Simulated scan of single mutants.
Amino acid sequence: MSRDFKQIFKDYQKKYHLCHWLDKNEQVASNEGEVFWQYCGLTDDFKEELVNAVIETFFKDKEYLYLCISPSKTDLINKELVAGRIAEQLHKKDIGITDESFDKMIHFTSYGVYKKGINQGFDKVRKRSDNQSLQVSFFTNVIEEKTKLIPSYLNEYLRLIEKDLYKNYGGTMESLWIDIELVEKQEPYPFRFQKRVNSPSSYTDPYTYNVGHFSIKPDFNLLDKLQSKSLICLYLIDLLCESINELSNRKKALGDFDFSTFQSDFIEACEKVKSILK
Score class of each variant (00 low, 15 high):
Lys185Thr: 15
Tyr166Asp: 08
Glu145Tyr: 13
Ser152Lys: 14
Ser152Glu: 09
Asn119Phe: 13
Lys146Ser: 14
Leu182Val: 07
Arg159Asn: 02
Val136Ala: 02
Ser133Glu: 14
Leu165Trp: 00
Gln132Asp: 07
Asn141Cys: 06
Leu154Ile: 12
Ser133Thr: 10
Lys146Phe: 11
Asn155Tyr: 05
Glu162Tyr: 01
Ser129Asp: 15
Ile150Asp: 02
Pro151Lys: 00
Thr140Phe: 03
Gly117Trp: 12
Lys124Tyr: 10
Leu176Met: 07
Leu149Gly: 05
Arg126Met: 15
Leu158Pro: 05
Thr172Asp: 06
Asn131Tyr: 03
Asn141Gln: 06
Leu154Tyr: 03
Asn168Gln: 10
Arg126Ile: 15
Leu182Glu: 08
Glu145Ser: 13
Asn155Ile: 08
Asn119Cys: 04
Lys185Cys: 10
Ser129Phe: 09
Gln132Leu: 14
Lys116Asp: 07
Leu158Ala: 07
Lys148Ile: 10
Glu174Phe: 00
Tyr169Ala: 11
Glu162Cys: 06
Tyr153Thr: 06
Lys167Ala: 12
Phe139Ala: 11
Lys163Asn: 14
Val183Ser: 12
Met173Arg: 03
Tyr166Glu: 11
Val183Met: 13
Asn168Glu: 11
Asn119Arg: 04
Arg128Ser: 08
Ile150Met: 05
Asn155Arg: 09
Asp123Ser: 10
Asn155His: 03
Ile161Tyr: 03
Arg126Val: 15
Ile143Asn: 08
Tyr157Ala: 04
Leu165Gln: 03
Lys124Glu: 15
Gly170Ser: 11
Asn155Gly: 01
Tyr157Ser: 10
Lys146Trp: 12
Phe138Gln: 00
Ser175Arg: 13
Ile178Gly: 03
Gly170Glu: 08
Leu149Trp: 02
Asn155Leu: 09
Val125Lys: 13
Arg128Leu: 07
Lys167Ile: 08
Leu182Tyr: 02
Leu182Trp: 04
Glu156Cys: 04
Val136Leu: 11
Leu176Phe: 09
Tyr169Lys: 10
Lys167Glu: 15
Gly170Phe: 04
Val142His: 13
Ile161Asp: 06
Leu182Met: 13
Lys116Tyr: 01
Val125Leu: 11
Asp123Cys: 06
Lys148Gln: 07
Pro151Met: 03
Asn141Asp: 10
Lys185Asn: 14
Asp130Cys: 05
Lys116Asn: 05
Arg126Leu: 15
Trp177Ser: 11
Lys167Leu: 12
Gln135Leu: 15
Gly121Trp: 00
Val183Lys: 14
Thr172Asn: 14
Ile143Gln: 13
Val136Ser: 02
Tyr153Ile: 05
Ser137Tyr: 03
Ile150Arg: 00
Gln135Asp: 14
Gly117Glu: 06
Lys163Leu: 12
Lys185Trp: 11
Ser133Arg: 09
Ile118Val: 14
Arg159Met: 07
Asn131Glu: 10
Val125Glu: 11
Asp164Trp: 00
Arg126Phe: 06
Ile143Tyr: 07
Leu176Tyr: 04
Leu154Gln: 01
Gly121Arg: 05
Leu134Ala: 01
Asp164Cys: 06
Arg128Gln: 13
Arg128Ala: 07
Val136Asp: 00
Leu160Cys: 09
Lys163Gly: 04
Met173Asp: 09
Gln186Trp: 09
Ile180Val: 15
Leu154Gly: 02
Lys146Asp: 12
Gly121Gln: 00
